[in-house]
Structure formats: structure tokens, C-alpha cells
Nucleic acid binder design. Structure first.
Length: 614
RNA sequence: GCCGACGUAGCUCAACGGUAGAGCAACAGUUUUGUAAACUGUAGGUUGCGGGUUCAAUUCCUGUCGUCGGCUCCA
């Protein structure tokens, strides 16, 4: 109970802060036209339409003005008005966006509701709206449902964090407004703690660690959004592919290989050409043909299925592959490994009968759950049951009855496997509904990784069939699925989750040998150790540079190598070593014979890899 | 794509309308080191790229490429 009260208070604080922000902006920019100002996680924002852009430098001024508003200690005064009167009020004050919200409220009983708008409404029950509420705090009055502090003086510690453009009501053809973001807490200590957390999170940013740990890079010459994996980064990819291979073998998945482009006609037939025209990379042949760099793999896979007649007894057929796909993403949305123009999906398509869907989708959900749990990534996830947007039927291919059935089946799978999936209208794929597994990056941004998608449409478009028991030809169902999602995003998540401290089986370098001096016997022993470890398939590097031991230890530590062994006269003379263990992996080991160490590491690597590919 | 910010050595950063500097990294020499940074030196930059303004541009303007924060999109 206590927790609930606290949450409500924080909500009121954030909500009130949005008003205080708007008040300050009104004082500084009297011509401002107000948009909406909802509460978000840890804070709030408010959208403003201004003739000139608010810059980061203005935030300090606005903050100072906000402190004045707080100090003035205005009370939040509630006022209930007939909707017409409220409309007049905002019309007189030349607030066209508020007027628009009220007009929609009046004509449709709702704004074209997105969550953001609901937040801003002055009513609880949008269906029967005749009156709305306004809240005034000193010189500023806003259309608002309420849920405030009593006075501006009760505001806690706050900070404006960023400013950006944002389309009015989230639609790209609407005017763009200035969105000012802020965070707020009850106490200064909590705010400081939060700011410190943000700082810590920035240290785990995969873009920073990717460079520091030498995992991947980008080149202006190669092009934006086209990741280049270094040898160390490729170790990660190979280790993950190994885990996927094991999963595939266990569950009778069939690896296939396809070329990276195909004729435009393929994507016309699949429906991708029309819907994703702007994101296709076009490749012109000299011989009067146009090709497309594959943006998805499903159409290719349908053609492997179509290569020969199929019987009901052949199904399910589970094709899998891990190759790069290409999408010409808009420049503004490319960033790090989170959104790239070339990305490697651990893609798979299951062709099955309707009566096999539940089993197949269920198994996939189990595989995904176990895989992410084994890696410790499961705690911070949520599941989206991604459904079609009923208001835009033209955005999808396939028949409504198939969609109804598919959506219901996936909902049942979610329920059966206790996924606590959130139904998300409008998040479906072109061809069917999905179960998407969502995760957060270091900075709290959502990203989709694993997915299970049901598709009745594409097999029909490609005329795929199988011969059923009764001799009739029927279209198979296609299940599109990915466990990792893309290697790019998955590696992003791994880097940020582990802050670069990869588990042993994933670590690009597992053991580093550091020599104490360049004595012949010491060098010889170090090389011998390297050979033993390499023969045991352990990834080992030898640092025999002319640096001090302290410096070598530091270097190994910064490279986040799990085990470091110092090799000097003692090791050259005897058999024992004292491995230094990366702090997150446990206590430093006592002395042990080197052979035992090597055997132990080998076992540990195999064991951990096995657990990650359940 | 849209709004805004930014682009100086491999990295982190400094400087300035008068053709750039530090630390770390690299390289060389000295040191031969026992668990988180030895010492000295050397080299490294058409200041992302192109155009313009100017006696003079890295600095100002502009285009472009790229990066960052959001918005929109995401098969």
C-alpha cells in the first residue's frame, strides 16, 4: 500500500512539473503555443510550438524561471467548465492545439487517442464528454485531468535534460514542435542518484565499449549503418552461432543458404516491394534486370519450399539461416548496432499445418525463454502481442478471417506460457501478428529481439501447398521466427548487460599470459603454456612486451580478460600458477598446477556454452 | 526523412580570422621488472570532404558525408 501511495505522489510531482515547465516557458516566450505535456518514466516533457528553436543553452534559463515559479508557491486551482466554454477560453488565448484537442473531444468523444493525448484530457470518461477540467497555477492555465500537487512550492528536485523536435500528435505530416524533457524526484539526493545512474549507464554504451574492447567499427567509406566486426567481435558472433547450431540440432531445424539478392519480382509477389519501397536497396543489372538486396529472407525460403511437392507428412519444415539483410534505413534512425542498414538475423521459417501451430509456436517460446534466462537477460524484458491496427486494414496482406484466427492462436500461446504479453494494436507485421520479446538498452531504450510471427498470407501469395491426408492441396502456414533477433542488436544487449565483462564462453580473449621479464626460460615457459591452452581450444594471448608487470595486469584488466596469468622465474621453474580472475567472476584462485587450470577452464567454457544453448 | 547539437592525432580533449597543442595509445632506445600506469625520445593532423566570403579560414557562410539526442518509421 505504501508503495502505491509513493508512486501516485511521484506521478503528481511529474505532472505538476510539466505545468511548471509550461509556466516558465510562457513567461519567457509569451507567443508560445502549447501542445501536450505528459508524465513519462522518471519525469515529464512538454511540447511547445515556437517561432525559434529552443537550444540546450535555453534550458538553463528555463530552469531558472521554473525555480521562480516554484518559489512563488502558486496553488493548483481546479475549474470545471462546459467544453464549449473551455474551447472559447483557449481560442481567445490563441492556443490552436488545445482547441484542436477539445474539438476532437467534442466531435468524436475522444482525441484520436494515443496514450499521450489521454494523459492530457480534462475528463475521465471520454465517451460522454460534456465538461472538462482546467488547472491553473499562477499565470498558466492548462486543460488537464488533474492529479497534481497542491502547490508549486511542493516541487522536489528537478532538472531539464534535453530538447528535441517532436511532431504534433506523433504524426510526421503534422507540424514539428519543440519538446523539452525533464526529470524530477522528491529529493535532491534521489535526483543526484539518478544522474549518477545515467552516467554509469553511459559507460556501458555498446558504442563506447565496442571501440574500447575492439569489437566492431564503422567506416565513412563503407557507409553509415554498415558494421564491420573485428576479429574479437567475430568471436562473439561465432560463439553465438555455435549456440544456435546446438539449439537447431536439438529441435530439428534445417540450415539453408541463399544469395543476398533477388529479382524485384520476388518482392512484388511477397508484398514487400509495395509496403517497404523506400527501404529497398536496388541493384541494377547490366542485362535489363533489377535486383533487390534482400531485406528479409522469407521470400527466398518460400522458393526452397516450392522446389518440390510437399506432403502433410513432411511438415513441419524448419528452415534456418544466419545471414545479413539490408534495409535502406532513413539516416536519422541509424545508430550504433541498434539500427543498421546491414544486419544479420538468426532467421527461420517454419512451414507447418494449422494443427501444428500451437506446438511449433509453443516450442519457440520455450527456446527463447530458456535462452535468455541462461544468459541472465530475461529479468528486464516484456512481451508484446503485436496485433494489427483495425483502423488501417490496407496496411496488411491476407484475409481478415486468417488474421482473426492467427491473433487468437498467438494470444493462447502467450497465455499458456505465462508470458504476460501486452496486446499492442498496430504493431503487427505486414503478413501477420507476432509475439515480440522486448528488451531495454543501457540508456533505457526499448528494442525488439526475439520474435514469433504467424503468417497465413505469404504461402498463399506464393501458391505454396502440401498434399493433405485426404489428397487435397492445402496452403501451409508460415511461422517467421528469430531467437536472437539480429546479431547486431543482440550483441548490443550483451555488451551493455555485461558492461563488456563477457561470460567466459563468450569472452573474445579468455586467458592472457603476462611475462615478468624476457629471460629465455620464462619466454619458453610462456609459449609452452600458450600452446597448451590453444590446444584446449581456449582463446589465449601472450603479452611479452617490455613493460612492467603492473602495466600488463592493468592492460589485461582494461581489456576485461577473464583470466590473467603472470609468468616469471617461479612458473618457469615449477608447475604451479596463480591465475588472476576478473573480479565479477569470483575470488582469485589459490595456486594450482597449470595443467589443472587449463583443464578446468576448458570444462568451464564447454559447460557454460552448453547451458546457453538449452 | 524531420527538429536540434556536433565533427581538431588511434582515443580523451585544448586553442584560434594570422596555416594547431596536451595526456594516453603507437614506434625507438634505456630499464628486466612479480599482480592496475618505469624513464627518455620520435613520429603522427590538407582541423571529415567540397565550394564560397576574406589579404588570410581550422575558425565565418554553404553544400555534402558522418556522429549524437529526440521525433517518425521499423518486414
Amino acid at each position: 500500500m505504501a508503495e502505491k501511495t509513493e508512486k501516485t505522489d511521484l506521478h503528481a510531482l511529474h505532472h505538476s512539473m510539466a505545468h511548471i515547465l509550461a509556466t516558465a516557458v510562457q513567461e519567457l516566450f509569451p507567443d508560445v503555443k502549447f501542445g501536450v505535456g505528459p508524465v513519462i518514466e522518471n519525469g515529464f516533457y512538454y511540447d511547445f510550438d515556437l517561432p525559434e528553436a529552443i537550444t540546450a543553452d535555453d534550458l538553463g534559463r528555463i530552469e531558472a524561471k521554473m525555480r521562480e515559479v516554484v518559489k512563488a508557491d502558486y496553488s493548483f486551482e481546479r475549474q470545471e467548465l462546459p467544453i464549449e466554454e473551455a474551447t472559447n477560453y483557449f481560442e481567445q488565448r490563441q492556443q490552436p492545439y488545445k482547441v484542436e484537442l477539445l474539438r476532437d473531444l467534442k466531435t468524436h468523444g475522444t482525441t484520436v487517442a494515443k496514450d499521450i493525448d489521454r494523459e492530457q484530457l480534462g475528463v475521465e470518461d471520454v465517451a460522454k464528454v460534456t465538461t472538462v477540467t482546467l488547472y491553473a497555477s499562477g499565470p498558466f492555465t492548462d486543460l488537464c485531468r488533474g492529479g497534481h500537487l497542491e502547490r508549486t512550492g511542493q516541487a522536489g528536485a528537478f532538472k531539464l535534460t534535453k530538447v528535441s523536435g517532436a511532431y504534433w500528435r506523433g504524426q510526421a505530416d503534422n507540424p514539428q514542435m519543440q519538446r523539452v524533457y525533464g526529470v524530477a524526484f522528491e529529493t535532491k539526493a534521489e535526483l543526484d542518484k539518478y544522474m549518477q545512474q545515467v552516467e554509469e549507464a553511459e559507460k556501458r554504451d555498446h558504442r563506447k565499449l565496442g571501440r574500447e574492447l575492439d569489437l566492431f567499427t564503422f567506416s565513412d567509406l563503407v557507409g553509415a549503418g554498415l558494421p564491420l566486426y573485428t576479429p574479437r567481435g567475430t568471436v562473439l558472433i561465432d560463439a553465438l552461432k555455435g549456440a544456435l547450431r546446438q539449439i537447431g540440432r536439438k529441435h530439428d531445424m534445417l540450415p539453408v543458404s541463399i544469395p543476398h539478392l533477388a529479382k524485384l519480382e520476388l518482392y512484388k509477389l511477397s508484398g514487400h516491394a509495395e509496403k517497404f519501397e523506400a527501404e529497398l536497396f536496388r541493384v541494377k543489372s547490366h542485362y535489363n534486370q533489377e535486383f533487390i538486396l534482400k531485406p528479409v529472407n522469407c521470400p527466398h525460403h518460400t522458393q526452397i519450399y516450392a522446389a518440390k511437392p510437399r506432403s502433410y507428412r513432411d511438415l513441419p519444415l524448419r528452415y534456418v539461416e544466419q545471414t545479413m539483410q539490408y534495409r535502406d534505413e532513413k539516416p536519422g534512425q541509424i545508430g550504433g548496432l541498434q539500427r543498421t542498414r546491414g544486419f544479420t538475423v538468426d532467421d527461420g521459417h517454419i512451414f507447418c499445418r494449422v494443427d501444428q501451430i500451437e506446438q511449433e509456436a509453443g516450442t519457440l517460446v520455450e527456446i527463447i525463454t530458456e535462452f535468455y534466462q541462461a544468459l541472465g537477460l530475461w529479468d528486464d524484458h516484456w512481451v508484446s502481442l503485436s496485433l494489427r491496427d483495425p483502423s488501417t486494414p490496407d496496411a496488411y496482406i491476407g484475409e481478415a478471417s486468417d488474421w482473426d484466427a492467427a491473433e487468437q492462436m498467438l494470444a493462447e500461446v502467450c497465455k499458456k506460457h505465462n508470458l504476460e504479453a501486452k496486446p499492442m494494436e498496430g504493431e503487427a507485421a505486414l503478413y501477420g501478428p507476432k509475439i515480440d520479446f522486448m528488451f531495454k538498452d543501457a540508456l533505457g531504450r526499448q528494442t525488439q529481439l526475439a520474435t514469433v510471427q504467424l503468417d497465413f498470407a505469404m504461402p498463399k501469395r506464393f501458391g505454396l501447398t502440401y498434399q493433405d491426408k485426404d489428397g487435397t492441396e492445402k496452403p501451409p502456414v508460415m511461422i517467421h521466427r528469430a531467437i536472437l533477433g539480429s546479431f547486431e542488436r543482440f550483441i548490443m544487449l550483451l555488451i551493455e548487460h555485461y558492461a563488456g565483462n563477457f561470460p567466459l564462453w563468450l569472452a573474445p580473449e579468455q586467458v592472457r599470459l603476462a611475462t615478468v621479464n624476457d629471460d629465455e626460460a620464462v619466454l619458453a615457459r610462456a609459449r609452452e603454456m600458450r600452446t597448451v591452452l590453444k590446444d584446449a581450444d581456449i582463446r589465449v594471448e601472450l603479452d611479452d612486451s617490455a613493460e612492467s608487470v603492473g602495466k600488463k595486469i592493468r592492460a589485461a584488466s582494461l581489456a576485461k580478460v577473464p583470466y590473467t596469468i603472470v609468468v616469471g622465474e617461479k612458473e618457469a621453474a615449477g608447475t604451479e600458477v596463480s591465475p588472476r580472475i576478473r573480479s565479477d567472476l569470483g575470488q582469485s584462485e589459490p595456486k594450482l598446477p597449470f595443467d589443472k587450470f587449463a583443464a578446468k577452464i576448458k570444462l568451464e567454457v564447454a559447460d557454460r556454452a552448453a547451458r546457453s544453448s538449452l
